[in-house]
Simulated scan of single mutants.
Amino acid sequence: MALLIAIILWLLLFILALVCLALITPVFVRVHLTTSPQFAYRVEMRALAGLAPRLTLADGPRKGPVAKDKAEHRPKTARPKRRRIPSRKRGHGAAVRALPTLVIGILHRIHLKKLHIDADYGLSDPAETGRLCGLLMPLQYAGPIPTNVTLDLRPDFTKPSLDGSVTAVVRVTVAALLFPVTRFAWRAFGPGR
């Protein structure tokens, strides 16, 4: 019996160590959006500083026929009316006031590792496309762009269009997010609120 308890305790300790390791090592999140031939997206995550296998969090529509026909032929059902549930007002104002610091705190802990934008763009008037091109060219060529950012922007003066893809990879440590979340919870729902 003592051996079984020892095995269970060592197993729990091992699981706790794995959870702590997952919390303190960086997680890489890769987001890929594309608009050609149709809109699609993919969100992937690699834990343990990229050593863990890639995990797909969200996968948008695949290339193929668009499923508009099924949605158009689906009969519409009447929704039942919902009862209004009174909301709790305690801490509502404090939560709204503390929300900007939460967003800023989280954004400070998310690090951009790679950003690649490849796009063809055009407006209905070639002159307007030229103006937009004039606004976007300094982003692409004039300023010092970080090495992890790549911009490939091409104007299309023949027709209105926006075709291309965006790939972004960010690094975040889950344990670092606990500080702004805890600060937000204390300011919004702590004593005296």
Rank of each mutant, 00 (worst) to 15 (best):
R154F: 02
K114E: 15
K76G: 05
I85S: 03
T56N: 08
I104S: 10
R74I: 00
L151G: 01
G50S: 04
P126Y: 03
A47V: 09
I110N: 02
L48I: 05
R84L: 13
L55T: 13
A58Y: 12
R90N: 06
L112M: 12
P65F: 09
T101H: 12
Y41G: 08
T150P: 00
T56D: 03
A49G: 07
H73G: 02
I110A: 04
R97A: 15
A58L: 14
D156H: 07
K76W: 08
P126N: 08
A52D: 05
P138E: 04
F157W: 12
K63I: 13
G143E: 09
P86E: 09
I106K: 02
A127G: 06
D69F: 06
P86T: 10
L151D: 00
C133N: 14
P61S: 10
A119I: 13
V66H: 01
K113N: 11
P75E: 13
T150V: 11
R54Q: 12
L51S: 09
R109K: 14
K114Q: 14
D125W: 03
T129V: 08
A67H: 07
L139Y: 08
K81L: 11
K70P: 00
E44I: 03
P155S: 02
A98N: 03
G130M: 11
F157R: 09
A40V: 00
K76E: 10
P80K: 15
K114R: 15
R46Q: 15
K81A: 11
P146D: 08
S124R: 10
A47K: 08
P146Q: 11
H73I: 10
Y41T: 02
E44K: 09
H73K: 15
R74V: 05
L102Q: 06
I85Q: 07
P61Y: 05
M137V: 12
I106L: 13
V43A: 06
P53R: 15
L151N: 01
L57G: 04
Y121E: 01
A119R: 01
A47C: 10
I104P: 00
L136M: 09
P80V: 12
I85A: 05
K81I: 04
T101K: 10
A71F: 05
L55I: 15
H116E: 15
G143R: 12
V96Q: 05
V43W: 02
A127N: 13
L123I: 04
D59R: 15
H108M: 08
A142M: 09
P126V: 06
R54L: 11
T147G: 11
S124Q: 07
A52K: 03
K68M: 12
P155Q: 10
R109E: 06
P155M: 02
H73R: 14
E72Q: 11
L132P: 01
H108F: 05
G134Q: 02
K68Q: 10
E128F: 04
P126M: 07
M45T: 10
V103D: 04
D118S: 11
A58N: 00
T147I: 00
L102G: 03
K68R: 12
A95S: 08
L51F: 12
P75S: 02
L115P: 04
P126E: 07
T147F: 03
A78G: 01
A49K: 07
A78P: 05
L151V: 01
R46D: 06
P100G: 02
A142K: 10
A40S: 15
A98S: 06
P144C: 00
H92T: 13
P80M: 10
H111K: 14
L57R: 07
I145V: 15
